[in-house]
């Protein structure tokens, strides 16, 4: 199929902050909001932009590994916490590692294309600061091939994979050039975050970001070819969007 047979619109987007180290609100030893809080905040933020939650035909929620990070399965059943009017509507949870939020959107789109729904509330949520990074790495490693690769993988499994790629890039283009490029990349990311009040790095006030990005990798404590700045931090947060057909948009 080359072309969608119906037009699909995305509207009423809503994001929570990305909470984690670096945000002023974050304190590792103090209690933090959980899944319920983020699902509600993002979902209600989207619904507030339309007249009535009763106008929603379906809900999809994307998440990776809440069963381990939060000891919570069956996340779709949490969607009516956003609005009681979602009760008894078709609700489904999807998972595909880092692509879980994207899957929520494409699953919603499928319902619309299949003419099963005119409006779908799609939410993505993660609360991963519940465990220390060393154990979080185990859980995130579940996105890889556990039986075949975990045992021989790096303690920080995915950073380990990216480290291998960085190592290959050093070989091909030279260490200095690649290191500088990655440091610049980090600098850009934080500069962008400073423009966005909800971004995790919004409060980052490091003067010389590029110098931080140039920190030489330390294989004793982390990976062989990348440093902490090359990696995104662990975050808690959620986003929601309403998908609609033309009829749904009305």
């Amino acid at each position: 199929m080359k072309k969608l047979r119906r037009r699909i619109f995305a509207t009423a987007g809503s994001n929570t902050i990305s909470l984690g180290t670096g945000r002023k609100e974050f304190h590792p030893k103090k209690p933090r909001p959980g899944l319920e809080h983020y699902i509600k905040e993002a979902g209600q933020g989207a619904l507030a932009q339309i007249n009535d939650a009763d106008n929603i035909d379906e809900g999809v929620i994307g998440n990776f590994m809440a069963a381990r990070f939060n000891r919570q399965g069956n996340l779709a059943a949490m969607m009516p916490m956003v609005d009681a009017k979602l009760e008894y509507k078709p609700l489904i949870r999807v998972e595909g590692a880092c692509g879980s939020g994207g899957l929520a959107i494409s699953t919603g789109a499928k319902s619309i294309l299949a003419e099963m729904a005119d409006t779908v509330l799609a939410i993505g949520v993660e609360v991963q600061n519940t465990v220390k990074a060393v154990y979080g790495a185990d859980i995130l490693g579940g996105a890889g091939y556990y039986a075949g690769q975990r045992k021989n993988g790096h303690a920080y499994f995915f950073p380990g994979k990216f480290s291998d790629r960085a190592g290959a890039a050093y070989e091909k283009y030279g260490y200095d050039k690649v290191r500088e490029a990655m440091a610049r990349w980090y600098e850009r990311a934080v500069l962008n975050a400073r423009e966005c009040p909800k971004a995790q790095e919004h409060h980052n006030s490091t003067e010389d970001l590029f110098a931080a990005g140039m920190t030489p990798p330390n294989p004793k404590t982390f990976c062989e070819h990348i440093n902490f700045y090359d990696c995104s931090k662990v975050s808690d947060g959620a986003s929601a969007v309403i998908l609609a057909s033309e009829e749904g948009l009305d």
């Binding site: 060393v134 021989n152 303690a155 004793k220 982390f222």
Partner: peptide, 25 residues
């Protein structure tokens, strides 16, 4: 142990039963 995880994974390389960081720790 948590802080030494990189070295410990290496040290326990031969232990097939220890897969995740939490097993090793």
């Amino acid at each position: 142990a948590e802080k030494s995880i990189v070295a410990l994974r290496e040290a326990y390389k031969g232990r097939e039963d220890l897969v995740e960081n939490s097993d090793i720790i």
